[in-house]
């Protein structure tokens, strides 16, 4: 069948998503948007895990993705709480104005 998808196509898609995540992480100025681009990068890495798990016919790659999801959920809860705490003290979400450690 000529309609089979190469696994490399999935990996290239993950690379595209990861680089968009890196670019968004550097370009975005809103701290919530920056946090969302971290989630995008985590998702791209998860896609490579699933693609390689399919390639080797092993289920351990999928379990690794499961653990990544758990850690991402915990990270999102703590990170958003930190964002709320920052907003309470600094009254802004712009990362250029959150420079407490500079001066």
């Amino acid at each position: 069948m000529s309609t089979e998808v190469p696994i490399a196509a999935y990996l290239i898609l993950a690379a595209i998503l990861f680089s968009i995540g890196v670019g968004a992480f550097l370009i975005k100025r809103n701290v919530i948007s920056i946090f969302m681009s971290i989630e995008l990068m985590l998702n791209a890495v998860n896609l490579t895990f699933v693609a390689f798990a399919h390639k080797w016919g092993a289920v351990s790659g999928q379990i690794f993705v499961f653990f990544v999801m758990v850690v991402a959920a915990a990270e999102a809860a703590v990170g958003l709480a930190i964002i709320i705490a920052i907003f309470r003290t600094r009254k802004t979400l712009n990362v250029d104005q959150i420079n407490l450690m500079q001066n």
Partner: peptide, 20 residues
């Protein structure tokens, strides 16, 4: 980052095979 990743993936493209 994208060029580096896609270079590696495309070089190993034959060895990776297709999705079944």
């Amino acid at each position: 980052v994208f060029c580096l990743l896609s270079f590696v993936f495309l070089r190993e493209s034959k060895a990776l095979g297709n999705v079944h």
